[in-house]
Write a protein that binds this DNA or RNA. Structure first.
Lengths: 167, 167
DNA sequence: TATTGTTATACTCTATAACTATA
DNA sequence: TATAGTTATAGAGTATAACAATA
């Protein structure tokens, strides 16, 4: 009844041509961890690390969002946004202020110090990104960035509206 | 001394042109979580989920690797590989056998049942991957896969050989 | 009744250190 | 002394539920 010996290494036909190097999930996994590795030194000291950086980026342009809108933009849960903003506010990189149009909500605003810190981290991250993409030509690097951004934008829409086409 | 009111929204020049949608780290984060979301239903019931699937893929071709070589291939720590293989072996999808050339090591072999299960999961994952890349033309999808794989391969090499060019 | 922000809790994933048996 | 596998533990990261204030 046990599959020992005789059942090992059979049915090869069903998985022919499969290889780790061509697997999309594997590639995403390796690229994600590699980016975390090369980017980690760029965000040391910044509250929340890479996630804190994304919050600052999201605040750099446009109207001050509510915490919930910010969480949706960055791709974080609103419960972790609370802790993240606590830490960023403790270093006066952001400020929370009441939303004049909804007394439940709070607007998140980037401070001058926050904008300065964002510039510092951004320049370091640029070098880390070049390190990650160093095997790609300039054109290929631009292509990869564009393709990833397109997938990411629709992914964000799907995450905010889960199952709008279901049922 | 506090940055309230007057220091808010200054120094805009240093971060001009910054946007979340063009940030590489943000895109990688969103794509990674989106893939996990669309792929999760494809790997339900498989021990280890998506990581278990990658182990099966890595075993589908070539000589049976040791646990350590397998961990390096997949991008996992050898300590999690132990638990993962325990679970996969409990369902008889893989077998551990002594390495004839090194009595410390064990070879990991895919069973017939494991190869069948791999085929099942692979076909479901193919649909999930198409769902993730549905906004891309066929050519763009192929490009993205190729570019990600290239980055992933060098990332794997760097992870296995940390800091070979340092010092 | 639904939503915003908060808090608490649990679960997954990852990282690290120790231990054994071999090399 | 170094390596392969195992075990235990601690730390991130994530997900979920509950609560108060407000819509």
């Amino acid at each position: 009844m046990n599959a020992r010996g005789s059942e090992v290494e059979t049915a090869r036909d069903t998985t022919d041509g499969l290889a780790l190097a061509t697997d999309l999930g594997w590639a995403i996994r390796m690229v994600s961890s590699a980016f975390s590795r090369v980017a980690s030194s760029s965000v040391v000291g910044l509250p929340g690390g890479a996630r804190g950086y994304l919050v600052l980026v999201a605040l750099a342009d446009g109207e001050p969002p509510t915490q919930l809108a910010l969480a949706n933009d960055v791709g974080l849960d609103r419960t972790v946004m609370t802790y993240l903003l606590d830490d960023l506010e403790a270093e006066e990189l952001i400020v929370r202020r009441p939303d004049p149009s909804d007394r439940r909500a709070r607007q998140v605003v980037l401070t001058g110090a926050g904008r300065e810190r964002l510039g510092d981290v951004r320049s370091r991250l640029g070098i880390a990104e070049e390190e990650l993409l160093r095997d790609l030509s300039d054109g290929d690097a631009i292509s990869l960035r564009a393709l990833l951004s397109r997938i990411a934008l629709t992914a964000q829409r799907d995450a905010v509206l889960p199952g709008a086409t279901d049922c």
